Amino acid sequence: MAQQQVKRKRRAVSGVIILDKPLGFSSNAALQKVRWLLNAEKGGHTGSLDPLATGVLPLCFGEATKFSRYLLDADKCYETVMQLGVTTTTADAEGEVLERKPVSVTQADIESVLPAFRGAIKQVPPMYSALKKDGQPLYKLARNGETVEREARDVTISKLELLAVNGDKVKLSVACSKGTYIRSLVEDIGAQLGCGAHVAELRRTQAGPFDISQAISLEKLIALQEQQDSEALDQFLLPSDCGLTHWPIVELTEHSSYYWLHGQPVRGNQAPRFGMVRVYNHQAQFIGIGEMNDDGLVAPKRLIQSK
């Protein structure tokens, strides 16, 4: 009789790891790998990066997962390499080639079209995306050869700079609002240039307050876990509220903390008049997030479980 494998007990770890997502991994595959390395009970990521993309992917564990949705709304920065002269089904290098055209654009030509894509623009999401139509992800419909009407969405490109031109490859730096598709942006720029284009490379350099300098490679995490153990990776865990540093802090007394943690709105020290806030107790411990109500009280929204 085969010996039954003993399931290892997961650890209740909380915090955020900024992963430098490797090429070829889906965001979920990267999350599950790091969660296994950490031996963490619970984990979630903060918005998908395509398998083709690398770079900043904040991964939330334990109590930090309660605040991951607020990181989804964060602005992002990317560096991308456009392949001119070739359009593909997915608008990136993973798709099948749709059309090839000769490339005769100059650096000046590229510079001349970029202003039209800066600021507030309308963008049609690609068919190969996780957006849903009647409950079905668009990429599943696209794989079946279907194309459906997609409504143009408002996005903001706060920075779009030409970094380099190397033959038919163009490197761009992009800073944008949530929901922006770099594949659609590159495809639209290629159409404007008249030769078409797709994303050959994509690297996310910033997501909200996190940048690439804080990111840890998967190889480093694997090596450390193999040399030592899962606990050795705890040194890379940032505090659960590290993605909310732009929110005001409200400090509560021991008395107020008790009632707040039991669902009651309370008065806080140096509280703003409105908006979302980070809440700390009398021992300077983060205990959750709240929202200011019309009475000037901090109403609890998401609480940190006390150990």
Rank of each mutant, 00 (worst) to 15 (best):
T106N: 09
A207F: 12
R203Y: 09
F274L: 11
P58M: 08
L37K: 00
G179H: 04
I222P: 00
I18Y: 02
A299S: 15
Q32C: 03
Q235L: 14
P209E: 09
D20L: 08
T87M: 06
E251F: 11
D211F: 03
Q264G: 09
L237Q: 00
R100M: 15
D188H: 08
S306R: 11
H246W: 05
A30F: 06
A284G: 13
A152N: 06
T65A: 03
Q107A: 12
L233C: 06
R302P: 12
G196I: 00
D229V: 04
K33D: 07
K21F: 01
S213I: 00
T54S: 07
A120H: 14
S240C: 14
S217L: 02
G44S: 14
T65W: 06
E254D: 15
C195D: 13
L163I: 14
H262G: 01
G268K: 10
Q270H: 14
S213K: 05
E41Y: 09
S26P: 03
A116N: 13
M292P: 02
D234A: 07
N39P: 00
A130I: 11
K21R: 07
V34G: 00
G135P: 04
A130S: 15
H262S: 12
V277T: 10
S68C: 14
A164K: 14
P248K: 07
M292S: 02
Y181W: 08
W36M: 01
K140C: 02
T87L: 03
A2P: 15
D75Y: 04
Q264W: 09
P51T: 10
D229R: 05
T80P: 02
L202M: 09
G135F: 02
A197I: 06
P102S: 15
H45I: 06
E99P: 07
D50Q: 03
A116F: 13
A116D: 14
L218V: 10
V155H: 05
L160G: 07
M1L: 13
S68D: 12
L252W: 08
A271M: 07
I18K: 00
L303D: 05
L84K: 00
K132Q: 12
G275S: 09
Q228W: 06
G196N: 01
S217N: 04
G290F: 00
N28E: 03
R183I: 05
L244R: 04
D229C: 10
H262K: 13
L131P: 07
P248I: 04
G43C: 07
F274G: 08
N269I: 13
I182C: 06
S240D: 15
A232P: 04
A200H: 14
N39S: 12
S27C: 05
Q32E: 10
P137I: 02
S26K: 01
N281L: 01
V174R: 00
R302C: 11
P115Y: 11
P272R: 03
Q192T: 15
D294H: 13
V124C: 13
P265L: 07
R302G: 05
A53S: 05
D229P: 04
